[in-house]
């Protein structure tokens, strides 16, 4: 359960989000520049809200009044970026293990679910866009997050790859019991993935509906 009530005052726009999210996939839906990425960056701890609070399963991640602001590494949040952001100097295997608390733990299950068995000893720069994103998803899940944040993870993929990745993402909440907050401006992705749609307009979450 994620409870959010935050405001970020920027020079040109004020971003605000007030919502409560449960299991499943919540799509933050809105046009580019509406403030969707700013909102999930605040959830991840990469941007500090001006005021408000964020609570994840009873743990306070941010509370301006109580002066709490956990750094990203202590939020148990997994983040899939638009551009993958795999570490170029490490093999796929090292990337996957980077966030693991127990480095000896088994990665085979996740690796086979994501279909990346054959890539483990390769470097990220030899992977296709879709493969990169599957590795990024595996890396985030292996860091045992309580929630996954995805910022338009399919923006740079062609439609065949999108189709493929969607089927993987769709399985995550049930397989790993991790809720997802998914940023998108594509109606198609909303229809395919969303259990819940939070519409963002001019910097504010204006509605929250189950899909």
């Amino acid at each position: 359960m994620l409870t959010v009530d935050i405001v970020k005052e920027l020079p040109d726009i004020t971003i605000s989000a007030k919502m409560s999210l449960d299991m499943g996939i919540t799509v933050l839906f809105g046009s580019s520049g509406a403030g969707k990425s700013t909102i999930i960056n605040m959830l991840a701890g990469l941007i500090k809200p001006t005021k408000g609070s964020i609570t994840l399963n009873e743990q306070v991640l941010f509370d301006s009044e109580r002066g709490i602001n956990l750094p990203p590494e202590r939020r148990d949040v997994g983040y899939i970026f638009q551009d993958g952001r795999l570490f170029p100097h490490m093999t796929v295997r090292k990337n996957l293990q980077y966030g693991m608390k127990d480095k000896g733990a088994d990665i085979d299950e996740i690796v086979s679910i994501l279909g990346i068995e054959g890539l483990l000893d390769r470097r990220p720069n030899t992977l296709s866009g879709g493969e990169k994103q599957r590795v990024a998803i595996g890396r985030a899940i292996l860091s045992s997050p309580k929630i996954l944040l995805m910022d338009e993870p399919m923006a740079s993929l062609d439609s065949a790859r999108k189709e493929e990745l969607i089927s993987y993402i769709d399985k995550i909440p049930t397989l790993f019991n991790i809720p997802i907050v998914y940023v998108s401006h594509s109606l198609d992705e909303v229809n395919r993935l969303a259990d819940c749609v939070a519409t963002v307009k001019d910097g504010a979450v204006v509605s929250l509906e189950s899909n």
């Binding site: 750094p71 202590r74 966030g99």
Partner: peptide
């Protein structure tokens, strides 16, 4: 790339 550093932070790295 600062983005790689942010990514590492979200993976639990100090």
């Amino acid at each position: 790339d600062v983005g790689l550093e942010s990514a590492a932070r979200t993976l639990g790295a100090s």
